[in-house]
Design a protein around this nucleic acid. Structure first.
Lengths: 153, 153
DNA sequence: CCTAAAATCAAACTAAAGTATGAGAGGCTG
DNA sequence: CAGCCTCTCATACTTTAGTTTGATTTTAGG
């Protein structure tokens, strides 16, 4: 109780000083704000529009997965080219290739003969020549090798 | 010659008028610029930073090629699952699958027998049971079907 | 037009592949 | 532990595959 009355003036003075200082500081801050209002505003605009730009780019950018489909198409072409190249290199004839494809489908020589309207002998001859050209002994090997060489699918 | 001296005053007057008008227009434009200097500046900033945002997005967007590798990994897992699933469905045993794989590599029954250290009879029994389970008649058909079912690679 | 390659066929083999049946040794499970 | 499945093997047989030789007919190219 006593202290309060005793040092009231000092207290008031101190409080006033504190308030004044606070006011000054606040005014200084206000001044800073006002003085740099343009820069701050410009900064906000810059930030906002950078965000807008990013959003736009995300929204409008075409997905990059299209590359895959292009590769697939190229692979198809490549297969065709390799087909011809391998055919020329091995010397496998068109008819022999037909027989080879049916072999790969699991048909027997008899079934292939019926499918191509020729005799069993003919298919045996074809396959024998085929094995020689592919340097294999069995039809299973021929199928395996032909697939590796991309002669057949 | 005559015309020039005759209408000099008119010409001068006209030119003065034109200059004045031009000056006014120019001043008006200047005024416009000055009056809207902030908006123009803000607009330029907006444009520039929108561009920056787009550039940033383009530059920093992660390439989507990673998805491909993920798909491949998933495919590998899927194959494993399908393998087991198909194995259970067809009832093909582990040993029969071994024989099947060697068949697909083009080996003869004799070669398979030697590779697995068992007799030719055993391989014949295995393959016969295999064909029954796969509902096929020949090894070539078995290979073809097993690959379609993803029992083998 | 003529020739070389490709396609066709046949016959007589040999070598694989595939079927059918039976049987023994282990291993897992109810 | 009995029953079932897998793996193993054998024997005897049928069917398919593959080779060899030789021949005729198309077909495409110089």
């Amino acid at each position: 109780m006593n202290y309060l009355t005793k040092y009231r003036s000092i207290l008031i003075y101190g409080l006033s000083l504190a308030a004044a200082l606070f006011l000054m500081k606040w005014l200084e801050w206000r001044f800073l704000i006002l003085n740099h209002a343009f820069e701050i505003y410009a900064g906000i605009i810059a930030l906002l529009f950078t965000g807008l730009g990013i959003w736009l780019a995300m929204k409008l950018s075409t997905p990059k997965i299209k590359i895959i489909t292009i590769e697939k198409e190229l692979a198809a072409e490549k297969t065709f080219v390799l087909n011809n190249k391998a055919l020329n290199e091995t010397g496998v004839s068109a008819r022999e290739l037909e027989v080879l494809e049916l072999m790969a489908d699991g048909l027997s020589n008899q079934e292939i003969a019926e499918r191509l309207f020729v005799s069993l002998s003919t298919i045996k001859t074809h396959s024998s020549n085929l094995f020689f050209k592919l340097e294999v002994q069995r039809r299973t090997q021929a199928i395996e090798k032909a697939k590796r060489m991309e002669l057949i699918a």
